[in-house]
Amino acid sequence: MGATGEPVISMRGIRAELGSRPVLRGIDLTVRHGEVVALLGANGSGKSTAVRSVIGQVPVSAGQIELFGTPRHRFRDWARVGYVPQRTTAAGGVPATVTEVVSSGRLSRARFGMLRKADHAAVRRALEVVGMADRAKDSVNALSGGQHQRVLIARALASEPDLLIMDEPMAGVDLASQEVLAGTLRDQVASGTTVLLVLHELGPLEPLIDRAVVLRDGCVTHDGPPPKAVGQHALPGHDHVHPHAAHDAEPIRTGLLS
């Protein structure tokens, strides 16, 4: 646990390419201890690439990334980071129970992959937090989309992280499950967890967000209080799909700043 205000994620001048196409063109982003930061932007704006560069999944061609004050390539304390990748399913090619999947999230705290009593207790707590304790022994194949997302979040919470990084945790989740997830996140934030999350829209998480960072074409275009949705965009369930004919023809409207 660090003092409030200490940088937990620090990105300076981050550039990244996928193939020859530049996806991040000099991103500066600092997430301080206790903050909840939303990364917003249209499809292809680079928001997923930005968080995946933080965890080392995407190679960076320039710039510096620090996690908890340590340069990322020397950072080893992965138990402090909980990651929810962008997925629609928690299932693999072989059946696995909810507990088995969530237990993988505890490996960062386990030595030599041995789970002790305290580790099993942490896995159970993570399942209770997302309201999936009664499904612990069920196969993940039997779950709905929202329940898959709750399992993925429980897996990230199993290591009792200080920092949660979530990539579109609300994708494909119905509103009722979104409320459950928002409640989970509220409890985590209240206990001092720092959160960086990629969102397509603010939705039920809006009251939790301290700061919004909007990306466009790999550059930060807004860093400050979350933009207020107005008009039709503010309606619950509005999914911000705009049938633009050619996105070069007019400025990209994320529906968040317009």
Binding site: I55, Q57, Y83, S108
Partner: peptide
């Protein structure tokens, strides 16, 4: 991808 973030 998740396994990488657990430090494996």
């Amino acid at each position: 991808e998740f396994a990488r973030v657990t430090g494996l």
